[in-house]
């Protein structure tokens, strides 16, 4: 989805302002919003790509005016409402108005550390050979999906070079739709600065993205 979240190369946002001695969380609500989001992924059963889409799928003015954890909170509410875990009326009222969804798994305290330490590998066994080789020149497809994608707009249509092959990984675009993992070969594709930003660009600059095989076409 070509939304406000896809920021690479956008102009006008001003300087980066680092915060000296920044705390991990700014206030108690950020702590709780973060922990609720992580803990709810087990009862919710959604995957990371569904979470990302729930956060980014909103009007630009909404995305850009919310703070980072406000976007997380809004994404969490969307995911829970979609699955019937809570209703929008309950969120508006701030209290329980309907019975819980039955047979929902929770994250018990003894599972917290093992779950985080285990993580969730996205690598899968390859079922077909890689179509592209390291060193090969490829063109990024000019596509504009209405749904979740991890192909940023600023590289679409541009020529790059395959630099790394990371093996087969769960394909985010389809995984976000709940239609299966559909693993694909994943590559790091490197672009020269001037290829992306024009001939006056710093010639020492190069940029890479990580791209699934179906984002690429042979030149």
């Amino acid at each position: 989805m070509d939304g406000a979240h896809d920021m690479g190369g956008a102009k006008g946002f001003g300087p980066v302002v680092p915060e000296p001695n920044e705390p991990v969380f700014h206030g108690e609500w950020e702590r709780r919003a973060f922990a609720l989001t992580v803990a709810m992924s087990r009862p919710g059963g959604w995957n990371i790509d569904m979470s990302r889409f729930a956060r980014e799928n909103r009007p630009p003015e909404d995305y850009l005016s919310k703070s980072y954890f406000q976007i997380w909170l809004a994404g969490l509410e969307t995911l829970m409402i979609e699955r019937g875990l809570v209703t929008s009326e309950e969120i508006k009222a701030g209290k329980v108005l309907s019975p819980p969804k039955p047979d929902v798994k929770t994250l018990p305290p003894q599972d917290v550390v093992p779950t985080i330490r285990r993580g969730a590998s996205t690598e899968r066994t390859a079922t077909s050979p890689a179509l592209f080789a390291v060193g090969e020149t490829v063109r990024m497809k000019e596509i504009h999906p209405q749904t979740h994608t991890r192909l940023p707009q600023y590289v679409r249509g541009h020529l790059g070079t395959i630099e790394l092959n990371h093996g087969c990984h769960v394909f985010a675009d389809l995984n976000s739709l709940g239609v299966g993992e559909n693993p694909q070969w994943l590559y790091t594709v490197r672009f020269d600065g001037p290829e992306l930003w024009g001939k006056d660009t710093d010639p020492t600059l190069s940029i890479s993205v990580d791209a699934w095989e179906s984002y690429l076409e042979r030149v």
Partner: peptide, 28 residues
């Protein structure tokens, strides 16, 4: 909003507040 949400999710039995405390402690 976050406070109300936590109490809704706890009351419905979806989250254990002790797990939330552990998650925060881990990342802090």
């Amino acid at each position: 909003r976050v406070r109300a949400l936590e109490s809704i999710l706890t009351e419905k039995g979806y989250v254990d507040p002790a797990s939330l405390d552990l998650l925060i402690d881990l990342y802090e």
